[in-house]
Design a protein around this nucleic acid. Sequence first.
DNA 1: AAATATTGCAACCGCCGGTTT
DNA 2: CAAACCGGCGGTTGCAATATT
Length: 248
Amino acid sequence: MEKEEVRKGPWTEQEDVQLVFYVNLFGDRRWDFVAKVSGLNRTGKSCRLRWVNYLHPGLKRGKMTPNEERLVVELQSKWGNRWSRIARKLPGRTDNEIKNYWRTHMRKKKAQETKKKKGISSSSSSSSSSSSSSSSSSSKEAEERRSFYDTTTTPGAGGENKTDNLEVEEGNKVYSMDDIWKEFEFSEENCAITSQTVASPIWDYCTTDSLWCMNYEEETKMLMQQQQQQPMGDHHLQSFPFYSYMIG
DNA sequence: AAATATTGCAACCGCCGGTTT
DNA sequence: CAAACCGGCGGTTGCAATATT
């Protein structure tokens, strides 16, 4: 039997749910392990990236505050492009986000300067970032758009994964990712995402030698059974009692 | 209203350093 | 001790959404 090719590209809601589930089972350290065990056909790297930049419950959503923007500018001038280091000073913000912000920021700054050169007397001489801070145009819509697959306000145009239902159903109830995150109840103050790992009750167990010798699937099945007294068939979302597990 | 340009951002890639085998 | 592996980092890209012509 040959290996299926590893999945790439945008994550679907289903993959997200699956990843969240397994990270909460096994913790957010052993990405290769999580990738294999989850049945997601992704690399550990890809899983980590998705988690760190998007799924982590400690993430702040929405626009950077002027204060944060100021901090980014300040720290960048101080440390250069050490994005992850800078991110550590902005709880809830990821290095990727900051990096993206900076690029945008620079682009605007450049544009402004070219304008100036061309003689169009533009605003204050202050080189301070704040001038360009608010990305004024379209801020609201952009904000809404990127607010984490906000299922309640899914834009009609919302191209991309039309095929993927952004909500997950169990029985009559519909859960969005937001709901799921809420249910996890991570304590905010401990959620400095860059420095904190997600605790897993079975993490210690997972790292014992004996367990590593076991077949992933068997191991997972066993753990699942332990957790919820319910055998699980295979690695497909449909067969998981995800929600009962996550919600209580 | 359609065509084209710009922007914003999620995700990939390659490299590097630390850890494990 | 060296080779293999893995995770983290920063740079870059691709594409959908939005703005402009």
